[in-house]
């Protein structure tokens, strides 16, 4: 067996479709996925993708001098890792989120929560040689999902990570520790394994470690593909 892309461990992938989330019934493929041999196309990905997708917007909270976003200033940092815990160098990490009032700056989000003129809410960075990434931002607000069985999304941050193979491409979300809405979120709770859910929740740094001004959160992101990341020299 090729361990580079061993099957997902049980309980980690969300169980779909999700009761109360109607779009998962109309969008999720009905047929079980076809198991294919993994060839070069699946195991590779573009190198130097940051030339195509410019990176470097790591500060979402400050638009310019005197233009601070509203909300609790936070710092999110961690590493992008492979399944052996090795940092993935030069992965493209995209982050987007709602503002402190729970609204996205996106034409589709027409909810009557206020927009913040000083908050756009997305950024893209490149991990360093050891897989480290970091963002300065604000803590997003919760927002309701407009479906018949309304539920509220807890404060969360969306992550999109492009790593060393297209098969290790990961789209996921990060949650905040201790939020009472976490236990009610249909999306977070669709992950069957409690430990897997727990790893989607960031760890708050002791304030003395984070330093003044910003509340710090640590969050590591683990991609699939154990042998697809070259060992660093």
């Amino acid at each position: 067996m090729d361990l580079r892309f061993a099957p997902w461990p049980a309980g980690i992938e969300p169980a779909v479709p999700i009761e109360g989330y109607p779009n998962t019934f109309t969008h999720t493929p009905a047929a079980p996925p076809v198991i294919r041999p993994l060839t070069r196309t699946e195991r590779t990905a573009p190198r130097s993708l940051h030339l195509k997708l410019p990176c470097g917007d790591e500060n979402l909270a400050v638009m310019g001098p005197g233009r601070m976003a509203q909300g609790q200033l936070i710092h999110i940092a961690g590493r992008v890792l492979d399944e052996d815990g090795r940092g993935i160098a030069h992965a493209v990490v995209e982050l987007w989120q709602a503002n402190a009032g729970g609204r996205y700056r996106h034409p589709i989000d027409t909810r009557d929560a206020p927009l913040d003129p000083n908050f756009v809410g997305n950024g893209r960075v490149l991990t360093d040689a050891h897989g480290h990434y970091a963002f300065f931002t604000i803590k997003p607000g919760a927002y309701p999902v407009p479906v018949p069985a309304t539920w509220w999304r807890p404060p969360h941050v969306h992550f999109s990570v492009l790593g060393p193979a297209t098969l290790s491409r990961l789209v996921t979300q990060m949650y905040f520790p201790g939020d009472p809405l976490n236990g009610y979120d249909r999306i977070l709770q669709s992950v069957p394994d409690a430990a897997a859910r727990d790893r989607l929740v960031a760890r708050m740094l002791p304030p003395v470690e984070a330093g003044p001004g910003w509340l710090g959160f640590h969050h590591d992101i683990v991609l699939r593909g154990r042998l697809a990341t070259p060992v660093l020299p």
Binding site: A6, P9, E83, E94, H106, D109, N122, R124, V191, V222
Partner: peptide, 25 residues
Amino acid sequence: APGDDGFAIAPMSEHTIGPFFPQNF
């Protein structure tokens, strides 16, 4: 958690990209 060939970290769960993937990306 123990893996097939020693100790490994399980990968993170996938989630939907949602309706609000930034247009300025």
